[in-house]
Design a protein around this nucleic acid. Structure first.
Lengths: 357, 357
DNA sequence: TTTGGAGTTTTTAACGTTAATACCGAGCTT
DNA sequence: AAGCTCGGTATTAACGTTAAAAACTCCAAA
């Protein structure tokens, strides 16, 4: 594919692909020695190695991954499956996550290949299997694990290394995962509004089936209990703007209405914004609001939305490190890593200063 | 990598990878005949072919892509480079684009592999080159092309098929591209607010260097001229919330202030929201606003932001089709395809109905 | 002088696939 | 009957790499 290129200056650029054999000829050794010089440096004499590396440099040699994959059954590919973007959601940072995941993968000497599956969990497993059949994949990265995740079972039964963004909710110690402490995050958000003097703090969270939602709810409960505040204002709904809006109306219509609403997502929080808008109330000034995720939207709305920023960059980096360790047979694996989200305070939770202009 | 799996029911699932030779043995033919049965059906007798396909089915054979890549110098991989997500921007739909790009790629028998480059344009080209050196890539998909794009020159000089999201601004007819008609979109948005009776319509657009920004500005100019409206209210700024905010203040402070603002991005439009918020004015009711992109945020803010939705799903599909055609040596290539964005009308551009509740 | 390594390098073979070629028999032509 | 074409199939070789084994060199120990 790569044709003769006038790369301008800087050494001769030979045409076509440079192979081991060409490097070997140049250095006056066998192909195997070149391979060894690169992969098992201690097997070649220092002097020879220097000569070989010079030749590698000079010819701009890069090992061919297909050949290597064929021979070694390891492709230096890490697979990841994206979800379809739901239009309603406040953009899930997938974007950024994927970028860093890829960057980290490349840095560690891998490449990211995307996986695609049409339908539900069974389809996803089939997709993994098909991918494995046709091109050896070194490892998988999973996202959004849930209780009794079939994907985990499948990958494990195939003996393929993987790490998941999302802890193993069924307490399976044998899985490498990285996750964000939603409970601590929500507790921090709740503590923050409590510190503003609020005592009627409602929580708009996800359905009870959602482990993630339950985790976040616990944080709110923790903070309320620590302060002996009421915990009667809570909603468990599916994640959508409309549900957030309706839940907010309910909590503001209550006999003793909420003065602050802690939400399990930015999407829900923006639903609260809408409800306030409809009632002629002002976010922050009249009712304190916090979201979760620090989606791009949170920074862009007026007033800005107080929210929790997940360290997704770090999550991505650690996931790659985790699979890398797994592949290297690191004895300290499996790794478990629970990261803290960061509270980003904006005007939606602050009573004061309006119209800075 | 794939270990013995109890797949439960449905035929014997042999362990390890199934190879051509195994299928051949099962069907009582040579390996080459199996290969032909799959790749050159007309070279084998119908009867034999049937027997072979049965064996393929039965054993669940999938050709090994590494071996194929090695032999054919074609990997069925399509490479795409993501940009880092800019925090300030209203999420660029990359998410969705990438999802559909991958889905289409898989549907067409390819896989998407992500590319990573640290620094600017030179780094990107180097990344492409490195990738090509180590694993044959069938094609590239580029995004955000600009005038005199070095990447285009490089890929062409290497003879690698590629298609770009973004027309060839320098009028190079020899490139396959898919793009969205920003001019038509902005014209439609401007016409829409004009139809609401606005006559002082300002435009907040991007810097003149940006071909994309210039294209969108033309649409606004078109619509204004068609109606003989003033075109004195315009700003050319970098894409950020803050710039949008400042530009809006300027246009509202003018001797004859704007009553409607057509923006080149949702990010800028949200800057306008903020400016109005600071002035105690209401989007839609007091000043009509339109954005561009239909980012998730546009639907979530209150009031909803009128904006232009790019058919990115279609763009992604067409890009894959374009590279597919290129690889197939389709004589109708290169393809050029200019798609129309869709105006999404929300309350930010409508005077009436407040507080539906 | 032989033996035995240790250290270094080369040779061989294989990973799974497919283009190119060789082979084979049936049906033609001359 | 010899020669030819042709549809169908099998054989060979090669893509670039690396594990495994073989070979060679040098030197210390027996």
């Amino acid at each position: 594919m790569v044709e003769p290129v006038q790369q301008g200056g800087r050494g001769p650029m030979p045409h076509g692909h440079v192979t081991l054999v060409q490097v070997a000829r140049r250095a006056g050794v066998s192909a195997q020695s070149v391979s060894n010089a690169l992969n098992n440096p201690d097997r070649v004499a220092a002097e020879t190695r220097k000569r070989i590396l010079a030749a590698v440099e000079e010819l701009g040699y890069e090992p061919n991954l297909s050949a290597r994959a064929l021979r070694n059954r390891s492709s230096s590919l890490i697979a990841f499956k994206m979800r379809p973007a739901r239009p309603d959601k406040a953009s899930m940072l997938m974007d950024d996550f994927l970028y860093v995941l890829n960057a980290s993968a490349v840095e560690a000497g891998y490449h990211l290949i995307l996986c695609h599956a049409e339908d539900g969990p069974a389809g996803e497993i089939k997709a993994y299997r098909d991918l494995l059949k046709k091109t050896s994949i070194d490892a998988f990265v999973l996202a959004e694990t849930h209780r009794n995740d079939d994907r985990v079972a499948a990958l494990r039964s195939w003996g393929v290394p993987f790490a998941s963004f999302g802890r193993s909710w069924d307490g399976d110690e044998d899985v490498s995962w990285v996750d964000v402490d939603g409970r601590a995050g929500t507790r921090a958000a709740t503590a923050h509004v409590a510190a503003q003097g609020h005592t009627r703090i409602g929580h708009i969270g996800w359905l009870a089936e959602s482990e993630l939602g339950q985790d976040r709810r616990e944080g709110w409960l923790d903070a309320c209990r620590e302060r002996e505040l009421d915990t009667d204002l809570q909603a468990a709904v599916a994640d959508s703007l409309e549900n957030g809006r309706q839940a907010a109306h309910r909590m503001l219509d209550a006999a003793r209405p909420a003065t602050a609403l802690v939400c399990a997502s930015d999407t829900l929080a923006l639903g609260v914004f809408r409800a306030l808008h409809e009632r002629g109330l002002r976010p922050g000034v009249d009712v304190a609001i916090t979201g979760y995720d620090d989606s791009p939207t949170a920074a862009l709305v007026s007033p800005g939305l107080t929210t929790l920023r997940q360290p997704i960059d770090e999550v991505a980096r650690q996931l790659i490190q985790a699979v890398d360790h797994l592949m290297a047979g690191d004895p300290r694996t499996p790794q478990h890593l629970l990261l803290e989200p960061e509270l980003i305070v904006r005007d939606s939770s602050l009573p004061g200063r309006r119209d800075p202009r």
